[in-house]
Amino acid sequence: MTRYEEILLWLSMAGYALAFAAFLNGMVFKRERFPVYGFRLIIGGFACQTLAVIARWYATGHAPVMHTYENSLIGIWFLVLIYQGLSRWFPPSRMFGVVVAPFSLLILGNGLLVGAELQPLEPAFRSNWLFIHVLFAWFSFGSYLLAFADGIMYLLKERGSSGTVARLPDLKLLEELSLRLILFGFFCQAVMIGSGAIWAHGLWGRYWGWDPVETWSLISWLVYGLNLHLRITLGWKGKKAAWLAVGSLFGIIFLFFGFGHGSSIHTEMFAQ
C-alpha cells in the first residue's frame, strides 16, 4: 500500500479503537458522555478511512474490490456508512458502536495480516456484475452485523436498565429494528447471490458449483430466511428473537473466514 494509505488507515483504526474504548467505558462505568465521544471518534475514523479508500483507488486504478484486504477496507467502509445512516434515522442506535467498532478493527486487522500489495485488476474481476455483487454483499453483511449489535443491546437491556443501558431504545423498538435490518440484509444478500451466479456463469460456465463459499453464502441466506419465518410466521419474539439475531451472524462469519477450511475456486478464479 502507499504511504498515504497506510497513515490514513492506521489513523482510522486508531479512531475505531478509541471509539470502542469510549463506548465500553460509557457502558461499564456508566459515564454518559463517553458514548457521544465514541460516536464522534467513529466519524473521525470513517473520514480517514474514506481518504484511505480514495488513496487506494487512485494508486491501483480500480475500485478496491479484489482479495481479502481490499474487501475488508471497502466492506468496513460500508458497514460504518450503514451504521451512521441508521444512527441518523434512529439516533438511539448510536450505542451499536460498541459492536461496530471492534468488529471493524477485527476485519481490517485480518485484511492487513493477509497482505495489502497494490495490484492491477485481475481479468476475472473485470465484470460489471462484480461491483453489484460486492456492493450488495457489504450492504447485507453490514445490516446483519447491526442486527447482531441490536440483539446484543436487547439482551443487555433486558438484563438491567441502569446507566447508559437505560438510555438504549425500548425493547420493542429494538426487536422491530432488528427485524427491519434482517429484512434489508436478506434482500441485499439475495441480490448478492443472484449477481454472483450470473458473474459465475460468464466466468466459469456454470451458475452454481457447490464451492465452499457458494455453499456458505446459501447457508447464511437460508439461516436468515429461517430467522424471518420464525419471527414473522411463528411469532418468535423477545429474547428468542434477540438470540436468533445474534446466532445467525455465525453463518456470515464462517462465510467470511471460511477460506481456511479448504481451497475454494473463489481464491484462485483464473489459473495461469
Binding site: 458449483g209 457447490w210 464451492d211 465452499p212 455453499t215 456458505w216 446459501l218 447457508i219 437460508l222 439461516v223 430466511g225 429461517l226 419465518h229 420464525l230 410466521t233 411463528l234 477450511h261 479448504g262 481451497s263 475454494s264 475456486i265
Partner: peptide, 29 residues
C-alpha cells in the same frame, strides 16, 4: 402448514452445514 415448511428448511440447513465439514474434490487439491 408453515411449520412443515420451517422444518423442511431446517433439515436442509442442518444437512448442508454438516456436509461442509467434510472435504471433497473442490476443497482438496
Amino acid at each position: 402448514s408453515r411449520t412443515s415448511a420451517i422444518w423442511l428448511l431446517s433439515v436442509i440447513l442442518m444437512a448442508l452445514v454438516a456436509s461442509t465439514i467434510l472435504p471433497n474434490e473442490i476443497t482438496l487439491p
